[in-house]
């Protein structure tokens, strides 16, 4: 028999690895194929395929770990965003209708986190937009407005998450005379 039946032409020219010797033609002639395969060892193609599969498995495993860190960070950031958005809504509630927008509203909020001794700081950028501007400009004579709070931040931890920008947005109606 010449080579493996699956890759007849290719395999016959390939070297054998793992200390295996080429198949003995006399045994093959006797028809004992099982014995022949046992002595044969792996071909270089089989070894490469096996290494490739193991590498894929390991990569999948490591990416799962990294995904776990990313999700934990995302979850923590979501808690921060909820708290910041609530604070901003309170700030909007405390704002007198028609008064100019305080610059402190759009001041970036830093959240300090130390995990296993590693200090990280996530910066949350805030933008406050008003639909018809009457809420922050007394010259505009309208009695209602819609305030949109946009919070953007970048997920800083975990493979593949670097630089990913996230945004949380909330819109609330405001009316003159309710403050």
């Amino acid at each position: 028999m010449e080579g493996d039946s699956r890759f007849p032409a290719l395999i016959s020219h390939l070297p054998y690895v793992g200390g295996a010797s080429r198949p003995d033609n006399s045994i093959a002639k006797n028809g004992d194929r099982k014995l022949e395969n046992k002595n044969k060892g792996f071909t270089i193609i089989e070894v490469i395929i096996a290494i490739f599969i193991i590498s894929c498995g390991l990569m999948a495993l490591f990416s799962t770990f990294s995904l776990s860190i990313r999700h934990a960070t995302q979850s923590r950031n979501k808690v921060c965003v909820d708290v910041i958005a609530d604070s901003m809504l309170e700030g909007v509630r405390a704002h007198r209708y028609g008064e100019p927008k305080p610059p402190s509203w759009e001041k970036p909020r830093m959240v300090l986190t130390v995990i296993q001794g590693k200090i990280s700081q996530t910066t949350f950028h805030i933008k406050v937009k008003c639909k018809n501007q009457s809420f922050i400009d007394e010259k505009i004579n309208k009695d209602y407005d819609y305030v949109t709070i946009e919070i953007t931040w970048s997920e800083g931890t975990g493979v593949g998450s670097r630089g990913i920008k996230r945004m949380h947005s909330e819109t609330v109606p405001v009316r003159r005379g309710l403050d």
Binding site: S68, I69, V79
Partner: peptide, 28 residues
């Protein structure tokens, strides 16, 4: 070596993730 690397790396990641969750939950 491979098995221990995976184990310790996994343990480190688990600790990092669980503390990351728990610390923000504690504050919440």
């Amino acid at each position: 070596g491979i098995v221990f690397t995976i184990f310790f790396y996994g343990k480190r990641i688990y600790d990092y993730s669980s503390y990351s969750y728990s610390i923000s939950e504690k504050a919440y």
